[in-house]
């Protein structure tokens, strides 16, 4: 049997590949944005550490720039290193 497709409606979905649904710092979903942003996706990316913990990039940068952080991961307290992908 042959059929001809005359019309198709394509739908795409994306999600960040994190081990968690929420960013531990702002408590907002990874697939949304951090508090400071409005457009999800590349404008508000995810940051993954060597310790495999994920946060919004903007959130982890704010934490690392605060004195309290001592450059530690907020979850496991290991030294924070951005994972090179």
């Amino acid at each position: 049997m042959r059929c001809r497709i005359t019309r198709a409606r394509l739908v795409a979905a994306w999600t960040w590949n994190a081990n968690d649904d929420l960013c531990g710092i702002c408590r907002l979903p990874f697939d949304g944005t951090c508090n400071a942003c409005k457009t999800p996706g590349d404008d508000c990316p995810l940051a993954l550490g060597e310790c495999r913990h994920a946060f919004h990039l903007h959130c982890i940068l704010k934490w690392l720039s605060s004195e309290t952080s001592r450059n530690h991961c907020p979850l496991c307290r290991q030294e924070w290193q951005f994972q090179q992908r």
Partner: peptide, 13 residues
Amino acid sequence: TPPQPSSQVAGVP
């Protein structure tokens, strides 16, 4: 209001 992503310099809160 929250800063626009374009106007925000990442890492400088």
